[in-house]
Amino acid sequence: MSNTVALSIENLRFAYQGKLALDDVSFTINASDFTFLLGPNGAGKSTLFALITRLYDCREGKIALNGFDIKQQTRKALATLGIVFQQTTLDVDLTVQQNLHYHAALYGMSRKLAKSRIQEELERLAMFERRSEKVAKLNGGHKRRVEIARALLHKPSILLLDEPTVGLDVQSRVAIVEYIHYLTAHEQLAVLWASHLLDEIYSTDQVLVMHKGKIKAKGHREQIVAMTKTKDINTAFAQLTQGELS
């Protein structure tokens, strides 16, 4: 594990129309860390993602990506970030490579560089052969692979994934979870993975349990089980969220 801080969140608070969505959230993610953000629906995971990506402004607290403050140095901070959103954000009328070229243009990549990066990333996910197909023709698992390839195109050092495996078959889920873990181990990528699927947690992952806008527990899977004096992560999670697993 590296000690370089990739993502740092300090005392984050956020409210929608008077309702508190995040309450004093603080944590850091280092390069090569796989951090599993666990929480039931409505825990505040999506709000947290929206603040990290600056879709919304954080009024209280601080967010820094690779040392760049998201409010003061927004563009530098965002340039180091790759995102896989919960809902698919691919244009289904375009082909796989057209979607990726569009992303490359938004990140200022030249056509030549984009072409070689697209090939590289698609080959790693065994999708290069399908580059000329329209996204509408792909199944859910393949669409997700393309979205991961796209998020990595500009070589970010932090990758955010919001429930990336929801609705996928077991085989696709396992493949994606394994691939992202591979990237943290071999390419020093810092990963924040939001999910409520407990079987996706590896023993080496840092786990953050979130409930009603608060971080209820931090640590490795076994540490959280020991802390809650339960028999496994399922019961630990149920106890921490008072049975609101969904």
Partner: peptide, 14 residues
């Protein structure tokens, strides 16, 4: 609603 506007909004440009 579908999310592709989000993709645009998080690009590192003003």
């Amino acid at each position: 609603e579908m999310g592709s506007m989000r993709l645009l909004m998080v690009a590192p440009l003003p």
